[in-house]
Amino acid sequence: MAHLIQVENISKEYINGDVITPVLHEVSFSIQEGEFVALMGPSGSGKSTLMHCLGFLDRFSSGSYLFRERDVTLISDTERALMRREEVGFVFQSFFLLPKSRVIDNVILPMVYARISQKKREQIARQALDSVGLSHRVQHLSNQLSGGERQRVAIARALVNNPKMIFADEPTGNLDTKSGEIVLKILQDLNEEKGTTIIMVTHELEAAQFAKRIIRVRDGGVLGDEKVIDRRKGAFHK
């Protein structure tokens, strides 16, 4: 199978005045299409930075990054915005829904930038909300939802532009166990049913065990890369 992501000797450091803080050091790995990978490590390990760089939100300082066999190491800011729009979707720890706005408007947002026609938007958004089990919340305001529901809105939002890959940054970090498991199950189903590649950053082993593969990150390097043998399947079933 073709590599979806291939990084070689990538490093990342933050420069703040005279202070240089190395975050990632010569990391290499590849991810195939259809994988569900957990980037696991303690806070400060560089896993979030790695995800941001892979998701075109940030750029590596050195090394090479091939996305679908295209070298994307040196693409411009505008191109990176287009990659985020067309190729990937994001789910964040603190949801980042628009304040005081309807659930459906949040889900429609990425389609506004992708120039999807007005007619199709609503239909696609409703489908996405349905797939995360929120068809009864379409017209609610984002601040009327529970944490778990908000994260599911965020997942629906990440889905609408049909991304090749979804990046989830500690998606269960702000949720209780039950809501967290529902969210993880949705991601798992998405991976299995639609074949969407998922890269999830987490520091919890319980969450990582929903993935097919765990890449352990520590002090800016890859510590281990293993298949999950005893995969968890959520108690929640649609």
Binding site: G89, P99, A114
Partner: peptide, 16 residues
């Protein structure tokens, strides 16, 4: 600021 960050994350260009 966070809304701007989000809009950028879902694919808004600087120009937009």
């Amino acid at each position: 600021t966070r809304e701007i960050g989000l809009r950028k994350a879902v694919g808004a260009t600087a120009e937009e």
